[in-house]
Design a protein around this nucleic acid. Structure first.
Lengths: 238, 238
DNA sequence: ACGCTACCATAACTTAAATCAGTTACAGGC
DNA sequence: GCCTGTAACTGATTTAAGTTATGGTAGCGT
């Protein structure tokens, strides 16, 4: 179904108004200029002038910000099908960085090709607008997550959300998903220290709510985890 | 310059590619169906199916989320010229609520009128896309703010950002701005308790970095405040 | 003039999470 | 086999922020 070559359009088509032709032209654009990078490298950094829009085809990317006091916050996880740095296409410069969490296969769409995509096709333009709204929605939830939930609920919420996001792309295996973040990555995504993440993970594990081994995450009791996480998937608009 | 009747287009025109005609049709749409509401009332609630897009013409609105454990997080401040609930136009339902902080004058743009605005005009559609990207950018900064900064820096950052956002709409008076949030609102916006906000405010006041009286905020030493706040305005794309 | 409410201020005390300073386990390279 | 690096884990201690509770004050209606 969702082969590696159509994750991009598959993901965008969730807005509901793209035609088959739209999808074909999107996937063509996303298969022209494909590169591979190793894990733990930066695709781009804050302040860079981005010339191309990047589409994650395989692997995980983290958007993050480094504060001047050294603290790092992971702002978002970009999963296969997600687009990044469309920002810099419309806006001057990157205001955050992109780092890979795994080896990543990604496409670069040049400005001109991007323009061509929605020249005379307002559906595609509207799909990008829609996608940006969903992105903002998720970001709002992250703000609330880090602002209001206690440590364990925060981590549980990250797990629930990531599972849901992968699931609607057919990238979940039942209650299991790939989950390449280390405990210190989880800390940076939730505004906690690695030490505290470790302790919370132990309690979640003891409660038989999560198993995380070899970069695979299993949620044996999603119902109860969602309750602890106060997870309501409405904001994902999936 | 920026009269009450053109805040909407003035704000959107910051993307740089709107024509005078575009601006006129935007302001026409935003002056058709104008209402007033008193302070501390909800424009709409999580779960509502929004039929109209709302444009703040005067006053302040807060976007917020209520968690199932009762905790409330203010997610964003909507200032004159800002648009809200465009979400629900593209997406099914509101995933957050909108509450007024002051008496508010706002316009409602109906679905049809909204459609008409970018029927045959991709510039306006792209302006909305651009605006949504800026919104997402600000939301990312809020995530980092709440996730990584210490209490005093968080509050300082909120002040710096709000001043900058008002300033670029010509709504600042030098170092002074309107600031209708109570200390407990500030707490909800920064993920802190009102008590702790009070302590931080006292230290900021003692350091002669902020004065807040009668809903007016004065930043006597913006340079030093920005440093404490680790505020870099790049993400505002102003 | 009275009480009511909203907001700001404060003190005493508790708690969640950070910090510091490690240990253990394991995988890859030589 | 050993070295190296990364990730997971632990315990002692400190600190930032939360909680509870209460006092003060300004504005408002009656």
């Amino acid at each position: 179904m969702n082969t590696i070559s159509d994750v991009f359009s598959f993901n965008l088509a969730r807005c509901g108004f793209l035609t088959t032709e739209d999808r074909i032209s999107l996937d063509e654009a996303a298969n022209k200029n494909v590169s591979n990078v190793r894990a733990r490298s930066d695709l781009m950094c804050e302040g860079d002038r981005a010339q191309t829009v990047k589409v994650v085809l395989d692997g995980w990317v983290a958007a993050y910000k480094q504060l001047s006091d050294g603290h790092r916050q992971i702002l978002a996880l970009l999963l296969p099908g997600d687009m990044c740095a469309a920002n810099a296409f419309v806006v001057e410069r990157m205001d955050y960085s992109l780092g890979t969490l795994t080896p990543v296969r990604y496409a670069e769409i040049r400005r001109e090709d991007f323009e061509e995509l929605f020249e005379n096709n307002s559906r595609i333009l509207r799909a990008f607008w829609w996608k940006e709204m969903v992105t903002a929605s998720i970001q709002r939830e992250w703000t609330a997550n880090v602002g209001q939930r206690l440590a364990t609920a925060r981590i549980a919420h990250l797990f629930c959300e990531t599972h849901a996001r992968l699931d609607c792309r057919n990238l979940a295996r039942g209650n299991a998903i790939d989950f390449p973040l280390t405990q210190s990555d989880i800390g940076e995504a939730t505004g906690l220290t690695a030490v505290h993440v470790n302790r919370c993970m132990q309690s979640l594990r003891a409660e038989k709510l999560v198993e995380l081994r070899n970069r695979e995450l299993i949620l044996p009791n999603p119902e109860r985890l969602r309750k602890i996480a106060m997870f309501d998937p409405a904001y994902l608009h999936a």
